[in-house]
Computed example of a mutant assay.
Amino acid sequence: MATFGSEGHMSRLLAISAPGDRLVFVGTKTDRTSQEHQGRILSMAEFGRLRLRTLDYFTKDQLDQRDFDTRGNFKFPFGVPIVRGWVFNPQPLVNELLKQRLTMLATPGVEELTDPDDVDKIMALPSTPFEPPPNLQFDQMRRVNDALKPTTGPIPSTSNYEVERSAMDTSWTYAMRFGNTNISKIGHATSVPGRLAEINKHIPHEIGIAIWKIELQQKWPDAITAHAMEQKVFEILEGKRTTGERINCSQKELMTAWQRAIVGD
């Protein structure tokens, strides 16, 4: 993850960027950065467009203990997922390579590179690809991020536009229960009633068979976040999964998993 001390800095990154854009990391001139890395362009990363909380994905022991205050609060609680990265070699001094001078904003937040020549210089640097360690949730974020990236070429495809537009629409994570059974279906949609109607079309309810009904739903600002919660529910109830999106568990078990997935536990 690329983490920030305030939600505002994270939001600004997402506001000024588009799918496929990249973050460049520069060593700060503080004792937190080794002497040989200070002021140098170190690496670059492609990032996903999910708003995450660091402690939902990493335990305190996995993080630098210097990044906790005296009350035990983590100083960088907000972030976006890094889906792939590159380490530069050599790692040039930023003030020697770029014409644009970074401001103080670049330390706690992000600063946009506006000079095309500077962007070209960074993209031309020799680099070694870095793949983040395998992780089910972050692997899924990577696939979603790839689906959102614009296609190459001068004319964006209509299909790509539709994928991006729908992914950024308000969406819901839902749980549907089949009649009064312990079989539930977990998914996400921009319209839960519409999705319910579509699913029930394939059931011959005319003969009195049970149908699906909405059990739980959670609203999210976009489909990416709704999908992430869906996958979190599946992860928590892994031992209860049957076929496809279905699980076999009690209402109490489902509710417990649902609440854990919302808070990221």
Score class of each variant (00 low, 15 high):
Ala2Gln: 10
Met10Ala: 12
Arg12Met: 10
Arg12Leu: 14
Leu13Cys: 07
Leu13Gly: 03
Ala15Cys: 09
Ile16Pro: 06
Pro19Tyr: 05
Gly20Asn: 07
Asp21Tyr: 09
Arg22Glu: 15
Val24Met: 00
Gly27Arg: 00
Lys29Asn: 13
Thr30Val: 05
Glu36Trp: 07
Gly39Asp: 01
Leu42Ala: 06
Ser43Ile: 00
Gly48Val: 00
Arg51His: 14
Arg53Ile: 04
Thr54Leu: 03
Asp56Phe: 07
Tyr57Asp: 11
Lys60Trp: 08
Asp61Trp: 10
Gln65Arg: 13
Asp67Trp: 04
Phe68Pro: 06
Asp69Arg: 05
Gly72Pro: 06
Phe74Glu: 04
Phe76Ser: 04
Phe78His: 05
Pro81Thr: 04
Val83Trp: 01
Arg84Val: 07
Val87Asp: 13
Phe88Ile: 02
Asn89Tyr: 07
Gln91His: 06
Val94Thr: 02
Asn95Asp: 15
Glu96Gly: 02
Gln100Val: 05
Thr103Lys: 10
Ala106Thr: 08
Ala106Lys: 01
Thr107Ala: 15
Gly109Arg: 03
Gly109Asn: 05
Val110Leu: 09
Val110Ala: 10
Val110Asp: 08
Glu111Thr: 05
Asp115Lys: 05
Pro116Thr: 07
Val119Trp: 03
Val119Arg: 07
Asp120Trp: 07
Thr128Leu: 14
Pro129Phe: 08
Phe130Gly: 08
Glu131His: 10
Glu131Thr: 14
Leu136Lys: 15
Gln137Phe: 14
Gln137Leu: 15
Arg142Gly: 02
Val144Ala: 10
Asn145Ala: 15
Asp146Asn: 11
Asp146Glu: 15
Thr152Ala: 13
Gly153Arg: 00
Ile155Tyr: 07
Thr158Leu: 15
Glu162Met: 12
Glu164Cys: 04
Ala167Leu: 11
Met168Asn: 15
Asp169Leu: 14
Thr170Lys: 15
Ser171Ile: 01
Trp172Ile: 01
Ala175Cys: 11
Ala175Thr: 01
Asn180Arg: 12
Asn182Ala: 15
Ile183Phe: 14
Ile183Val: 14
Ile186Lys: 00
Gly187Leu: 02
His188Asn: 10
His188Thr: 09
Val192Ser: 02
Val192Cys: 01
Val192Leu: 01
Val192Ile: 06
Gly194Phe: 05
Gly194Gln: 06
Arg195Ala: 01
Leu196Lys: 02
Ala197Arg: 09
Glu198Gly: 08
Asn200Thr: 00
Asn200Ser: 02
Pro204Cys: 06
Gly208Val: 02
Ala210Tyr: 09
Ala210Ile: 02
Trp212Glu: 03
Ile214Gly: 02
Glu215Phe: 08
Leu216Thr: 01
Gln217His: 09
Gln218Val: 05
Gln218Ser: 13
Lys219Glu: 15
Pro221Ile: 13
Ala226Ile: 04
Ala228Ile: 02
Val233Asp: 03
Glu235Leu: 13
Glu235Asp: 13
Leu237Tyr: 00
Glu238Gly: 11
Lys240Thr: 07
Thr243Gly: 08
Glu245Lys: 01
Asn248Phe: 12
Cys249Val: 14
Cys249Met: 12
Cys249Ser: 10
Glu253Leu: 12
Glu253Ser: 13
Trp258Tyr: 12
Gly264Asp: 10
Asp265Cys: 09
